[in-house]
Simulated scan of single mutants.
Amino acid sequence: MKYRTRTVQVPGVHVVDGIPAPVIRTEQVQEPIPPRDWDATALRAVTTLVVLLTLISVAWSTASIAHLLGAGPIGYLAATVFDAAWITALGMTYLVRHRPDRRSTVDRLGWTLVAVTVTAIGVEGWQTGGAATACAGAAVSLIAKGLWWALGRATRPSLSDLDSQWLAARLSALAAQRAAVAMQRQVVREQARLGEFAAGTRPAGPTPALDPGPTRPDPRPGGGVDPGPEVEPAPAPQQATVAPATESTPAPRPAGRPALHAVPDQVDPARLAQARAIVAELRAEGIEPSTEQIRKRMRIKRDRVRVLWLAIQAEEAAEQTRTA
């Protein structure tokens, strides 16, 4: 057996002064030379020769049929259809090489196309040189097709009956999977189109909400729902409101602004506690509390200060009523 020398790079470790470092070593190795595959060499040579002869056949048949048609450049384009057709059928034969039923159909089509080409070349040869020219010219395409048919028969694998059945079943299962994938892809496309169509036909405004059923009636005036029989609420304890002596008469409320009252939902507990502390400071300093005095120290809007001051006055009045 013959050997050949080949240079390879092997990773390793090199140590200098006790410190290792990764390196790549270059080494020469001997490896056996595999024997030449003469079968593969012969197949490449035969295939190359057949392709070369086919190209010559295509050139000859194209020129002959174009001369028969006599239409100039357009005639040459039309003449290429004859050879291109049976070469296409030749490619189909390779694709269905493992399916005997389909291969027979493609083979019949290929031979039919070759017969049409041979007939056209024979007619052109009969017109130009007689029977000998017609037969010789027609045999060119017939030889090229015959070589491809023989090459396919020589390289086609031979399978037993059981192997053929197993292969057919396997190919059928794979074909079923491919069909399912293709159908699933089509369904996904259709669903996407339906989604786009639904999005395009949806109204631009807000989608009306569905009626959730009977709801609680709105007792406010103009609520749009009959509030039913009104239930008189329990009377709230009366609170006397005492206006401060130094409080000036407030300016008339502008039109459109709602009146403010010292009700719990309008009073912030933290603000109210701060206002109580400021009122106590003012009284300790001998200053009569008022809306303006409280606003200066809290630095908030006058309307909010008025609400807080009214709430404090209401608390003081209630306290005085309880202690009286």
Rank of each mutant, 00 (worst) to 15 (best):
V123P: 00
V123R: 02
E124K: 03
G125H: 01
W126R: 10
Q127R: 10
T128N: 11
T128K: 06
T128W: 00
G129H: 08
G129E: 09
G130S: 05
G130L: 02
G130T: 05
A131C: 04
A131S: 09
A131H: 01
A132W: 02
A132M: 05
A132Y: 04
A132L: 09
T133I: 02
T133D: 10
A134F: 00
A134N: 03
A134G: 09
C135R: 00
C135N: 06
A136V: 14
A136R: 04
A136S: 14
G137D: 14
G137Y: 03
G137N: 13
A138L: 02
A138E: 04
A138K: 02
A139R: 02
A139V: 08
S141W: 00
L142H: 01
L142Q: 03
L142C: 07
I143V: 08
I143R: 00
I143N: 00
K145H: 13
L147H: 05
L147P: 01
L147E: 09
W148N: 09
W149K: 14
W149N: 15
W149H: 15
W149V: 15
A150Q: 15
A150W: 11
G152K: 06
G152Y: 03
R156A: 15
P157E: 10
P157S: 12
P157R: 09
S158E: 11
L159A: 12
L159G: 04
L159Q: 09
S160M: 06
S160Y: 04
S160L: 06
S160C: 08
D161E: 14
D161Q: 11
L162V: 14
S164M: 13
S164C: 11
S164R: 14
S164E: 13
Q165E: 13
W166K: 13
W166F: 08
A168Q: 13
A168S: 15
A168L: 09
A169F: 04
